[in-house]
Structure formats: C-alpha cells, structure tokens
Computed example of a mutant assay.
Amino acid sequence: MKRWKLKRKGALIMCAICLTVASVGLLLLCFVGCDTIDIKGVTATYSGQNHSAPISDCNRQCSCEIGLFLPVCGSDGNTYLSSCFAGCKTNSKDVGRNNDQNYTNCACIPGNSTVTSGACELSKCPHLLIPVVVLEAIVVFFGAMTTTPVMMIVFRTVPAEDKSAGIGVSAFMVRVAGFIPSRMIVAAIVDHTCLYWSDEMCAENGYCKIYDNTAMRKLMFGFLFLIQLISAVAIALAFVFERRERRRIVI
C-alpha cells in the first residue's frame, strides 16, 4: 500500500482483487482432491450386500469388535477393517516382511484367501499433493493480503477521536462473528463426514477412524468460500458508501 500510495478506494479495490483470487482458489479446491480409499464394509460393499456394513454373512460368526480398525490387504486387492472382518481363521508371521502378520483361510475372500497387515493403498492420487499444497498457499497468501488494507480503511474512515473504539469494535466483531462460530462449524463438519467411529467405553462416540474425504473437502472449502463471499459483499457495500461520501464531499 505504501509503494502504490493507495487511498481508501485503492485499498477497497485491492481487497476485492485478493478476495476474488482466494475465492476462485477455494472453488477449485472443492473439486481437486482424493477420494476415500475403498474399505470393505465402509466405502465398499461385501459380496451380496445392498449397502456398506462391517458385518456380513462371511464374518458374522467371528464376533468382530465394532470400532476396531487394524486394516489388512486381501489377496483380492481389497482393504478390510481387520482380519476378523475379512473372516480369517488362522494367522502366522511373515519373517520376510518385518514380522507382519499373515492371515489365511478368510471366508470373505474367494479362492486362495490371504491377507497381510496394512491397507492395500494409502491414497488414490498422490500426484495431487504438490498442486493442492500450491493452490492452498495461493489462497492463504491472497486471503492474508486483505488484512492491511482493511485496517487502513478503518484508520482512514473513522474520525480521529473514535479510532481506538473503531479498532476495538472491529476486533470484537472478528472474534464474535468469526473465531467462535467457525470453530463449532468446522468441528460439526468433521464429525458429520466421519464414516467409521471407534467404540470407546468412556466416550459416547469414541473418535473417528475413517473420514469421507470428498464430503469433508467440499463442505470445508465450501464453508470457507461462503465466508469469502460474505467478505466480498461487505467490501462491495463499503465501496458503495465510499463513492457516496466522495460525491457528497464534492457537492
């Protein structure tokens, strides 16, 4: 602002440009990301099931612990919540693989059924890591660039005798309308997108083991986009009032 010698109108235009760039970035982030990995009984169905559920006919007799998450990779290429949910009846250690557990005779896997410790895949799109990080960095950078212009607008708009009160009211509104509700909304989004909860005896729901990546991405970045949209409306209103004031001064 000092280099370009921006006044109130210039500061408002700068805020509008930065908010536009950040908003476009947030919209792109809503659609750029990885889907949740396929896990039988959570995001994928067992054979003969109409909907995803951990308990199926092939593991019903195993009395598996609901909430347990020790992922294993089956010989069929599918990931299961645990060897129990794969219907495995025997196990042994594979010395060649860092003493990982191998399980055999798994009722939920056809043919020569075996599973090994660990999920079959950790991510569906590791190639998107760098583009997403760069895009998020751009959003954060342009979002942060509005801080100084907004403060300068307050300084140059509020009368000198009311500047302290203006800064206090601005800080109060940021915390009341921003920090407090946003934490609750983000927490609600995180809980809402949980697909599989642990079963802890001392907690009502335990904690989340598996999230719906697509739903969380769209809800989280959609919420941030909504905040940017509200900010853009406020900047537009400030621009309108600034033009009216300049016309009144000229007249």
Rank of each mutant, 00 (worst) to 15 (best):
C64F: 06
L27A: 15
I13W: 03
S182Y: 01
V139G: 02
I230V: 14
G10P: 03
C208I: 00
I55W: 12
V72E: 09
C58K: 07
V21T: 13
F223N: 03
E242M: 04
L195H: 12
I39R: 02
G222K: 01
F141L: 14
A144C: 12
S164H: 02
T148Q: 12
V233Y: 14
V134G: 04
F241K: 15
M14P: 05
L68F: 10
F31L: 12
C18N: 12
C120G: 09
E200M: 10
C202R: 14
M173C: 03
N102W: 04
N99C: 07
V139S: 04
D57S: 14
K7S: 05
S198V: 09
A177I: 01
H127P: 05
Y207I: 03
N102Q: 14
R156C: 14
G77Y: 12
G74V: 04
Y103M: 09
F69A: 08
Q228K: 13
T148R: 08
V158D: 06
H127L: 08
T157K: 05
P181K: 00
S92P: 00
A177N: 03
E204G: 06
L195T: 10
L81K: 03
N78F: 05
E204M: 11
I66Y: 11
S52T: 05
E136L: 05
Y80E: 06
N78G: 05
D94Q: 07
M173D: 02
W4R: 06
G33P: 15
T90A: 07
S82F: 02
H51E: 15
D38A: 13
G74W: 05
R8V: 13
V24L: 15
L229Q: 06
A160R: 14
L27D: 11
Q101I: 11
V150K: 01
S47W: 02
D199F: 05
C34K: 15
G178R: 00
G77T: 08
C62M: 11
G48H: 12
V154R: 06
R3W: 03
T214S: 11
D212M: 04
E65N: 14
I227C: 10
S75Q: 08
L12I: 06
V24I: 15
N91G: 13
I230W: 03
K218I: 10
N213D: 07
A187R: 00
S83L: 00
D100M: 13
I167F: 10
K40E: 14
I185T: 00
N213C: 02
V190D: 00
K5C: 12
C125A: 15
I249E: 15
A137R: 01
T214Y: 09
V176A: 01
S75H: 08
I210K: 11
S75W: 07
K218V: 08
W4N: 04
S92D: 07
A236F: 13
R244Q: 11
L68D: 08
